[in-house]
Each structure stands twice: as C-alpha cells, then as structure tokens.
C-alpha cells in the first residue's frame, strides 16, 4: 500500500529521515532539535495517493547536465521519484559550540538484500555545491532488509548555511534564500546502478508552533 502513498519505489522504501542538532545540557542529557523530519508512516489502501508534480517544473532547481534530474528521470523507474517540500524548524538559538552535533539520520527497507549508495547533492541556483556519498549494507530484521544511515555528520557547508540563514532578521528573507537552495538525494543499487529512490528536496521556514512540517509529492511527466 505504501507505493504511491509514501516515499517508496518497488525496490526501496524510506522509513524515516531527519536532520537535527544535538546540544548537550549536562554530561548525561542533551536536547535534540529537528530541523526537518519525515516520520514513520503506515499508509493503507484506503489512504489517498500522493499528489503529483510535473518534474519539468523543477528541472532547473537541480543539476541539469550529465547525471542531472532529467537524465535520471528519463532513465527511470519513474515510480522512484519524489519531491519533498520541507517547512524547516529554525526556532532554535544557535551558538558556536564544538560540543554541538549536527547530523542526518535516515532509514530504508527492502525485500531484497543489496548494497545501496546514497548520493546527496546540495544545490545553489540549481548548481551542485557539495555532495556526500554514503554506502550502506543491509541488515536482515523482522523479515525484511533494513538500511540505516545513522547520525551522518552534516557537512561544514550546511552548518554555515544554517547559521547564516538564522542571522537573517525576517522569515521572508530566509524563504527568499531558500528559494534557490535545494537538495537532491539519489539512492542507487551499488552493484546494478539501478535508481532505487530519487528525492528532490525544497524548503521554506516553518511558521508553525509544532515544528518541522512537510508535503510529499510524486514526480511525474504527463
């Protein structure tokens, strides 16, 4: 049931995704602040399908040359492509402290045992500025294969970016910067090079008192 209703292709399903900051309070406790978060969901057949967005509407927000979003989408499988609009929670006081930990954690599951590669490209005006590539091996748990990218450190570029964003006095200014900031995550089967998931992330700043929010869309080409 999750196909078409959550971030899942026929081969891989995203279970959870978060970018966070951990601030130690004392030697035994710390505060965890979630900038963005996609929690576990268990859609059923009675849930509606995700809304769709025409992938051509966002081509220029992501790399367009070789290996860009267009080429990836045309290669398919097209059921592996999603757009996530995040309303990021920046309601936190940031100080420069080397004890702070900025991290990203994500989890995936599959019915297949494989090795996955996750490429995460941060883009400014559609051009890649930094890329992180991670390889994960499967763990067999409760009848399926689970992949965990646990507490991957946020890169220096992203930490600086968050700090600069926080220094802007008004939310509309932050949103104006975020209009040209995007992230493209491509999860691939390391051995077959098949695209398992491709997720395009775009951002605004949350105005909610309830923290980070998001909408998920299927990317299509009608």
């Amino acid at each position: 049931p999750w196909q078409g209703r959550s971030i899942a292709s026929s081969k891989l399903r995203m279970l959870e995704f978060s970018a966070f900051l951990e601030q130690p309070q004392d030697p035994e406790t710390f505060n965890k602040h979630l900038f963005v978060h996609i929690g576990q969901s268990n859609p059923t057949y009675s849930d509606p399908y995700l809304e769709s967005v025409d992938v051509r509407q966002i081509y220029d927000k992501f790399p367009e040359k070789k290996g860009g979003l267009k080429e990836l989408f045309d290669k398919g499988p097209q059921n592996a492509f999603f757009l996530v609009k995040f309303w990021a929670d920046l309601s936190i006081n940031l100080q420069d402290d080397s004890n702070f930990f900025y991290g990203v954690s994500s989890q995936y599951e599959s019915s297949e045992n494989m090795v996955i590669t996750s490429s995460t490209k941060v883009c400014s005006f559609g051009k890649q500025v930094v890329e992180k590539v991670e390889t994960e091996y499967a763990r067999f748990e409760s009848g399926r294969y689970v992949f965990r990218i646990h507490r991957s450190p946020l890169c220096e570029y992203m930490i600086n970016f968050i700090h600069k964003l926080k220094h802007l006095p008004e939310k509309y200014m932050m949103n104006s910067v975020l209009e040209n900031f995007t992230i493209l995550q491509v999860v691939t089967n390391r051995d077959t090079l098949e695209t398992l998931l491709c997720i395009a992330y775009v951002f605004e700043v949350s105005t909610s008192e309830h923290g980070a929010q998001h909408h998920i869309y299927r990317l299509v080409k009608d």
């Binding site: 809304e51 966002i58 220029d60 909610s208 909408h215």
Partner: peptide
C-alpha cells in the same frame, strides 16, 4: 550576472498544497 533568470516558484504549476504549511502536531 547569471545568464538565465529563474522563474519564481510561485509562478510555476505546482499544487495549491505546495504553499500550505501543514498544521499538524
């Protein structure tokens, strides 16, 4: 300057929900 001026997101064909922040807890 940049050779290509990007179309603002607001002027693109996107679902209405794209601009509606969920108010869920």
């Amino acid at each position: 300057g940049r050779a290509v001026e990007q179309v603002p997101m607001r002027k693109r064909q996107l679902p209405a929900s794209f601009w509606e922040e969920p108010k869920l807890t």
